[in-house]
Amino acid sequence: MLDEKRVVLMTKMAMYEENNKGKEDIRVSTYFRKDYSSKNLLWSFIWFTVGYILLGLLVGISFSEALMNGGNIMVLILSGIIAIFVYIAGLIGTLVYTYRRCKKRHSDARQRVKIYNRDLVTLLKMYEKESKS
């Protein structure tokens, strides 16, 4: 005999499991918050450093002619120091943003998975009640 409430609950849970939000939430919640943040911070560091180096190369190539023709050593050293400062500032900004984003994402995912687990318990109780009757 079909129980309408059970079918509604199962449909709601299946929709959550199947869509990308549910899969992502379950994947994120398997990590401890610190581990999840550390993993993403490491990737952010790598991506930012690679992107910055490539950007620096592109800018350097764009201005290579001007630098070779008229630039002196002091301009080059000053440009290098500014580039390092910008890199450090950008990296700190990116890592702070990544940390906050990961913290919120992990917390929100844990909340949604908690609701999902509660629904699982409710579903289990429904089955137990049905088997007893």
Binding site: V50, G51, L54, L57, I61, R101
Partner: peptide, 17 residues
């Protein structure tokens, strides 16, 4: 290589997020 570098920079600083 330049076009690839530009696309990687876009990915690194924006598309990743």
């Amino acid at each position: 290589m330049v076009v690839a570098a530009i696309l990687v920079v876009m990915t690194a600083f924006y598309l990743r997020f």
